[in-house]
Each structure stands twice: as structure tokens, then as C-alpha cells.
Amino acid sequence: MNELRDWTLEQEGIVYQACRTCEARWYFERCFCPHCGTAEPLRSQASGRGTVYSVTTIHRAPTDAMREHTPYTIVLIDTDEGFRMMGHGAADLRIGETVRAGYRAITGKLMPFFDREQQ
């Protein structure tokens, strides 16, 4: 368990959860399955691969720290594992493109940054 890397804990990786009894997979951590209620779901390391579901480029930032990075691009990714997540992304990403997660320190915090897979 402790070997899993989770960007929300300042580690280079994405963690998701899966139910032990039903087919559900999800992103926001819980100690039960939000679909069927089964306790102690599995935690797994995601591949970081996925498809761009949507994209926006932010010009008006919420904080002074983020303002230094404007414009920056926020994406929703449908991961290969089947859950959807938010991350940063390359400025020219388009919906439907396949991407892979890298990690960048933005405002001093590690964040997932999605870009096209290198050939």
C-alpha cells in the first residue's frame, strides 16, 4: 500500500480505487464503494494514460500564486483505467487526443501535467 505514489501527497503518481465486489472504479478517495457500499476498496496506481475529455485555458487565476502562471490549461482526462480526473495540460491539447501524465511543480506544488505521448 505504502508504495503507491499520489500527486495529492506530493508524489509523482495517480491513485484510484476499485471495488472488491462490483465493477466500480473511482478517483476521489473513500473507505467504501460509492456504488454498492462495500468496505475497504482496493487502491491502485494508474498508468497516467488517457484521453482528453475537455479542456480550458485560464486567463483569470484565482490566486496571486497562480496568476504568475497564466494563461494555463486545465484538462479533464478520461483515464485508461476508467475514471475521470482533472489536471494541467499542454496549451494546444484538443478533445479526443490521447495523453500521458507527467509532473510539474506549479506554485511549488507537484501537479499532474498531461501531454501527448512521445513517439
Partner: peptide
Amino acid sequence: RYEVPLGPTIPS
């Protein structure tokens, strides 16, 4: 935990 730290806004 999973969205706000990335710096999104309501318009975004």
C-alpha cells in the same frame, strides 16, 4: 484535494 489545488475557477 483533487481539483482546487490545481488552480481552477468557477468560470473554468
